[in-house]
Amino acid sequence: MTDTGTAPNTPSVVERTRTIAAGAPVVAVHFLGRIAALVLGEEAVLLVPDKGDEQRLSLHGGGILSAASDGVSAITGGDDGKVFSTDAKGESRLIATDSKRRWIDQVAAGPDGAVAWSAGKTAFVQAGKGEPKSLDVPSTVGGLAFAHKGVRVAIAHYSGVTMWFPNAQAAPEVLEWKGSHHHVAFSPNGQFLVTAMQESALHGWRVVDAKHMRMSGYSARVRSFAWTAGGKWLATSGSEQLVLWPFQGKDGPMGKQPKMFAAFAVRVTAVACHPKQEVVAVGYADGTVLLVRTDDGAEVLGKKPGEGPVSALGWDAAGTLLAFGTEAGEAGVIDLG
């Protein structure tokens, strides 16, 4: 064992926190400008402005299963079969209702307002006007992600990822790897694609030649991962410390060891990378939030331990606001400006 918690002299920004009574588990948090959109486990999205009162928007007639954002709107998918888009003014738009009222398991937000979602084995994309396009994959969709440019969607499922150009005639390409793939994301430079697997591991492909990279050694399923600003490091949950995989070179992490910081007695459950600096917000199973610098592992306390695991973390685009939420319904916005 190394550290089992924060040292007594760790600097703290806890006093800069505005505490929010979410009243329900927080599934995700996304910033729309300086407004934090806290996506709750059931029905509602809570908009928390810089100053003034929170606004609770009841959207879904049931559980909210997934959320995503492009920084302008928050997209939510529910077990009521509906997909909503909510903007910073609190205006919500119904994007789709599943014809069979199936659960909307996954959503993704893409360039120019494009939205993707999935119900069972079917992925849908709405880009621009007109009817959404759909594609069936071999098994239930575990994750969805837009590439950073153009309309290209990565659909994670059992045995690999299907790369789909909804506007092209070409047949979708499949990146294969045995096992069940969940959360999927492209690296900021678009060169790598990474999935979190049912096993305690990540799998990656170099997009240009589908070369594999396997990132393992976790004590649990990796439920949260994100690249640091500029894409140098891939920050990941799933271990009792922050695990950072190097993505500087053209080979990504192949043949390299990860860097590890901020060791704890409990697991990392959520990560969110600062949009400009080499800093990662790290949430733990006991409710602690730390800000960790990737150069040297320096730590700043963002939130003391609480009642439940940290389930949501998010930065605003300027990197001055950090919002958090837990499974037990604790939530807050830390103003670092």
């Binding site: 199936r102 659960w103 069972g120 239930t140 059992y158 045995k178 096992g179 069940s180 049912q198 096993e199």
Partner: peptide, 11 residues
């Protein structure tokens, strides 16, 4: 809730 009985092998 409807299910699809997707049986997966673990690696």
């Amino acid at each position: 809730v409807g299910a699809d009985e997707e049986v997966f092998e673990m690696n």
